[in-house]
Amino acid sequence: MNTLLRLPGLVHLALAAAALGLVARPGLRAEDAVGMVLIPAGVYEPILRGQDEPAKVPVAPFLLDVRPVTNAEFLAFVQANPKWRRSKVGPLFADPGYLSHWAGDLELGPRAPADAPVVRVSWFAARAYAAAQGKRLPTTAEWERAAAVGFTQEKGTDEPAYRQAALGWLARPSPATLPPAGRGRPNLHGARDLLDLVWEWVDDFNTAMTTGESRGDTGLERMQFCGAGAAGARDLTNYPAFMRAGMRSSLLARYVVPNLGFRCAQLP
């Protein structure tokens, strides 16, 4: 049996089964390490898209962590999974700066407060963390659908406070030591910190195309020039969504970034 479980495909199956059996239910549960909120069915409107892509992509209901994963939570993960410790992770799966702001392999230190979002983690590490919780990373469509929600209404861009939160964060450099996660104002569905704490990994970040792709579609080509691209974007009030698309297109899965964290999702 042990040999069977070493097969990745079967591991995924086992994790999926665990997810279904143990943690599949909507809403919050007290024993959850981090609460999840139900993001109801909605629509993702890609800020930039190919000529054949629909303007509106339906998104099924899903559960999303209320806030990004914290240093303390990620520490518990690497304690249980030694291969994801700073000293153990291979260069294929994380660049050398992986968790470099931690004081040690299993020590957070002053630059990584326990309740601050964990950053400098690769996509591989983020996905492994999510899988260990019986969860997964949200897709681009899910994440953007959740982040488009305002504080008091579905369409955040209609709300001055929403626009200010999103644009204000882009205007400020990230502090060297990040503030706690989970303190941001909740949006209409209860999710926090989507706009103004850290960038966040999504499962399919590598669907964001820049140049050198098979279809040289001008809308996508412009993504390598932020300002010029924004001029062609569909919704000029949603400059932050455009910036996120540009950020994703610049990433590789092994990259670690001082203000790039993640949160988890799962089906209700």
């Binding site: 669907t207 820049t210 899965a253």
Partner: peptide, 13 residues
């Protein structure tokens, strides 16, 4: 794809 740095996306067609 992640290890190679290949981006891909299934389109509507």
């Amino acid at each position: 794809a992640m290890l190679l740095g290949v981006k891909y996306k299934l389109d509507a067609r």
